[in-house]
């Protein structure tokens, strides 16, 4: 009787596993096709019927990205923007700590104002932010690209959630020892907050690496383009050169997948935190 039940559940598991495997294969098929096509020559890719694997593996598409495609500049800009977004991460952490561990006048109202910004769709602020940056002569500069998305309400909210759970007695003890508030933040709060910093750090990296809309709006000059904007330009300019397009896409997708695989443990934990609170 008991074994019969287990048998049934194993059978269910195998069937479900098979369905999942097929579904997962369909899910990642576009990526596999992208990577394989990026190593095909343009002549091979323009044939009506293609084999899955390239006949002659070539790196020419990747070389072209940097020689004629300007991807070196785009990469540099993307890395600069991503680097600066970590300053934004620090500002979010500071604000989260301020809201979590201090009592001050206006705390409730200010925190609600922060949360309210989460509801505003990007399309509503897109035009006025552009006008504000234009008045400040920051359009077509890296500063103008970086500033609008530097801080985020959701990130502040998550930092506050995590830091509220840090025991007050640790902070009080440090204060009695004469530590300054900033010393406490840097040397006690941030080290304790490692789990949430890890999650937020990865999400910040992904966000910076993928940033598209602000660079697209603010940068008129190709020398300020990010990888996403450059890739979109490439698609417009080399409409039928799919080998080159697939190389550009692979160049954007593969680093993120590698980083995700390294840090996946933290990201998946991060969603547990978010869903439970």
């Amino acid at each position: 009787m008991d074994t019969g039940k287990q048998e049934a559940s194993r059978q269910t598991k195998i069937i479900v596993g098979l369905i999942l495997a097929v579904w997962a294969l369909v899910t990642i098929a576009p990526f596999l096709w992208m990577i394989l096509s990026s190593f095909k020559s343009n002549a091979e890719i323009s044939q009506m019927s293609q084999s899955i694997l390239p006949h002659h593996w070539t790196l020419q598409n990747y070389k072209d990205l940097f020689i004629s495609g300007n991807f070196g500049v785009y990469l540099k800009n993307t890395l600069i923007i991503t680097g600066f977004s970590f300053i934004g991460l620090l500002l979010n952490a500071m604000a989260g700590y301020g809201f979590a561990k201090f009592k001050f006048k206006g705390r409730g109202v200010l925190f609600i104002a922060v949360l309210a910004t989460m509801m505003i769709p990007g399309q509503v602020t897109m035009i006025p932010v552009y006008l504000i940056l234009n008045q400040a002569h920051l359009t077509n500069t890296l500063t103008g690209i970086i500033l609008p998305s530097l801080v985020g309400a959701f990130s502040i909210f998550l930092f506050r959630q995590f830091m509220s759970n840090i025991s007050d007695s640790i902070i009080e003890a440090a204060r009695l020892d004469g530590a300054s508030e900033w010393y406490i933040f840097w040397h006690i709060i941030l080290p304790i907050s490692k789990p949430v910093l890890a999650v937020q750090g990865i999400l910040t990296f992904i966000g910076g690496w993928n940033s598209f809309l602000w660079p697209l709006i603010i940068a008129n000059d190709q020398k300020y383009y990010t990888l996403s904007v450059g890739l979109q330009l490439l698609q417009g300019q080399h409409t039928s050169d799919y080998g080159l397009q697939m190389a550009g896409s692979s160049f954007m997708v593969i680093p993120i997948v590698i980083i995700f695989l390294i840090f996946q443990k933290y990201i998946l934990q991060g969603f547990n935190i978010q869903a439970e609170k």
């Binding site: 990642i28 996403s228 890739l231 698609q235 397009q245 550009g248």
Partner: peptide, 20 residues
């Protein structure tokens, strides 16, 4: 992991791949 992968990848890159 496999099912999560499309979520983290860049929309532009993904859109270029799907256009192909």
């Amino acid at each position: 992991l496999l099912f999560y992968t499309p979520s983290i990848t860049n929309t532009v890159a993904v859109a270029v791949v799907w256009s192909y």
